[in-house]
Design a protein around this nucleic acid. Structure first.
Length: 282
DNA sequence: AGTTGTGTTGAAGA
DNA sequence: ATCTTCAACACAAC
């Protein structure tokens, strides 16, 4: 489940591994993932373009290419990108989760970028850079949770604007703040000692400050640990991240809370599971 | 062996 | 406007 830290890891890897390289060919067994044009047209349009820079907003990946084009990729739930070099032996690539290769970008002389996506929810769009920014799903994205613009002041304004919103749901709303998904909303709220059920309007100034600090701290730590590989997510080498080793509440229901000794609970919020400690999180 | 849980997002329904 | 539910799809666990 690639959320902001996982996508950040991928984007950093791409800039390290394929920046400056030319895309020479493309193959797909699931052209339905390609939005807006046929497989043939896509192939023609991408061939020969150089990778200038990878970047992201929230969980959305943008790979800027030469000639004013941008490749927009959303990994959705089970997607991840693998960069392989020919004749390279890497034990990770044979893992089950890395076997669902739906699309292959041939890059340079001897590299590929392979899109593994078990559930085929992933999305690929290629268009003019400006047109990609104008896509409705891109345009409506809220402020990125790790961007410099996402200050406490801004966060406080959002909470004032969304008075009635339940905080556990609001944190995951990509149109408000982009980047936080189901894993990190639970971890962040636990870190801040705030119940997911609280309403935005009911959070005191002190609560808000703790929550903001927790968002930044947890995401930063998760980026440092190269994301969470609870199930499907892998980095571009096919290797798992490390955040699952330090997870405190996500999927920890029934276990003891490290802070108060109480029991971690799981509940449905929306139709997703939220995890929390009823003792610590008031 | 059928049912359920898994989570991101968009669309449809209320 | 805003909330809820479902559908996209595949597989593991029960």
């Amino acid at each position: 489940m690639p959320e902001l830290p996982e996508v950040q890891t991928v984007v950093s890897d791409l800039n390290r591994k394929i920046k400056g390289d030319v895309i020479t060919d493309f193959w797909s067994e699931w052209p339905k993932a390609i939005n807006g044009k046929s497989l043939d047209a896509f192939k023609k349009e991408i061939k020969g373009r150089k990778v200038l820079e990878a970047r992201r907003i929230g969980k959305n990946i943008f790979i800027d290419l030469s000639g004013g084009k941008t490749l927009y990729i959303h990994l959705k739930m089970t997607g991840h990108l693998l960069i392989k070099q020919k004749a390279e032996s890497n034990g990770y690539f044979s893992d089950r989760v890395n076997q669902y290769i739906r699309h292959i970008f041939h890059i340079g002389k001897d590299k590929t970028m392979e899109f593994s996506d078990m559930r085929k929810f992933g999305k690929i769009v290629l268009d003019d850079t400006e047109k990609i920014s104008e896509l409705k799903e891109v345009k409506k994205l809220g402020i990125d949770a790790m961007s410099a613009e996402f200050t406490f002041r801004k966060f406080n304004e959002i909470l004032d604007r969304k008075q009635k919103a339940v905080i556990g749901i609001l944190l995951m709303d990509q149109e408000t703040i982009s980047g936080i998904g189901n894993i990190y909303r639970s971890e962040v709220l636990y870190d801040a000692d705030i119940s997911p059920k609280r309403k935005a309007a009911d959070l005191s100034l002190d609560d808000r400050k703790r929550l903001y600090d927790s968002i930044r701290r947890i995401l930063k730590l998760a980026i440092k640990l190269r994301g969470t590989s609870d199930s499907d997510y892998r980095d571009t080498s096919g290797a798992p991240g490390g955040f699952q080793k330090v997870m405190k509440v996500y999927k920890q229901q029934g276990k003891k809370c490290g802070k108060c000794g109480g029991t971690i609970e799981r509940e449905k919020m929306g139709q997703r599971s939220v995890f929390f400690c009823p003792g610590c999180q008031a």
